[in-house]
Design a protein around this nucleic acid. Sequence first.
RNA 1: GGGGGCGUAGCUCAGCGGUAGAGCAGUGGCCUUUUAAGCCAUUGGUCGAAGGUUCGAAUCCUUCCGCCCUCACCA
Length: 510
Amino acid sequence: MQERLDKARRLEALGVDPFGARFDGAEPIAALRERCPDEPLEDPTAAPAGRGAGRVMRYRDHGKVVFLDIADRTGVIQVYLRKNDIGDDAFAIVQLLDLGDHLGVAGTVQKTRKGEVSLFAESVAFLGKAMLPIPEKWHGLRDVEMRYRRRYVDLFANPDVRDAFVKRTGVIRDIRAFLDARGFLEVETPMMHPIVGGAAARPFITHLNALDMPLYLRIAPELYLKRLLVGGLERVYEINRNFRNEGMSPRHNPEFTMLEVYEAYGDYHSMMDLTEALFVELFSRYCGDTKVTYQGMEIDVAGPFRRAKYHDLFEEAAGFGFYDREQVIAKAKALDVFDAEAPYEKIANEVFEELVEVNLVQPTFVYDYPKAICPLTKAKRDEPEVAERFELFVCKMEIANAFTELNDPVDQEARFAAQVATKDDEAPGEIDHDYVRALAHGMPPAGGLGVGIDRLIMLLNDAASIKDVILFPFMRRIDEVPGAVDAADAEDEGAEDADGPGGMSGAGEP
RNA sequence: GGGGGCGUAGCUCAGCGGUAGAGCAGUGGCCUUUUAAGCCAUUGGUCGAAGGUUCGAAUCCUUCCGCCCUCACCA
């Protein structure tokens, strides 16, 4: 650290700003590499000109020749620097380089005698000093805690990580394109809700000072999107964050990204078709046309996906029916999921989760759920105990949830009232009367779909943890001691800051 | 919250009762085609924290902190 500060001063003495400035005309390194002639040239002056910038990741000093590798967002390229080519002044700057610094290079693109694609430097521009060292060159940054807490290091030290997040963005862009092409309108609905709704989960609570009222970070956008169906937007979707104040796990982050889609005049079968088309397209684009491996599980993604009724799967796995109370309760007790307080359907659903869900490796649409566990879903006309709902499971993960939307305001109000009456701390505390009023204005029959985007990206990236697909996953706060930069400054400035962390930013008061 | 595991140099890791180690990174040299460059020399540690056991603790015990896995929770 101190040594790097000294180098920064020595750069200043050479008339170089240690934190650089604008550098125009740099090509992506991947593009430079593509333009490189296939073989070393007889006449090196014939090589194409090239200009690149990036972070110095390797440095091989040969005296009056230096090889270094610079990396940008697209790749890595070797830079070949000869004192004769760039001159004494520029070479003095090169000798002050540290791993992690940013450097701009202008020269020609050609292969070295050993065949390495290289940027043969004619001039260099110092673009920025790194005061802290980069991780070990061979292993990178492995410590998972550091990788999550200091993603900025993880991203430049581990190219796979950067690629995974670039892929994430690509997937989301493709989802938008897929829906846009089918006439769906992307919208933004409130993230702060006066009434919790659209799912069953504990919310984060906040407060709006201006109106002196409590607000909740949304647990789902559902009720607002369906208001838009009433408004006549007919086909809408939203991709954005939901917040749930619940347990964290490799598949749960307190804030997570959800896609919700609503299609007027559709139903859960139309959403099943839409979901299947989207997933088949994404799998084939990002993984492979037919087979995908996730965490050692090989799945067939060519489609069509298996479609199986909830009750059939239940019976197939259990050997008895969903409403065979005695056997179901006995099984629940045997599986240690029996809860004497819970309604029957909830207990039976626990049995379903234990017996069926944990085995759903191949992509499977499970449909026709018991109505009692689906408060926002329309019941089947000829089977009033069955809700028109499906969930898509892939590799034992619930990845999508969809249903034919309940659009009867009277029924909806009754179901809300029943929820509120349960006193379940995950049920809404009050009825959303405005939502009921919206339905009363006439919501078209519709299919609605929710897709956990983070989990989908996990599948596409073969990521074991949701933290591997979220740039800055939630981590418990740790009180940082003042960083190396502050400490060195304090040393430098003398005793003024010697009273320690109290005066430092970051670790103290919000 | 329960159970299990981990925490040693900037990074990746050995060491597991007897003087704190290696590689990489760093620092000083040599070298005008190397690529995990090489060669010589060298700096660097409250062994996560605090107690305890012991002649002696990175090592054994207790508590705490953080992370990972797992269970619970999570339509």
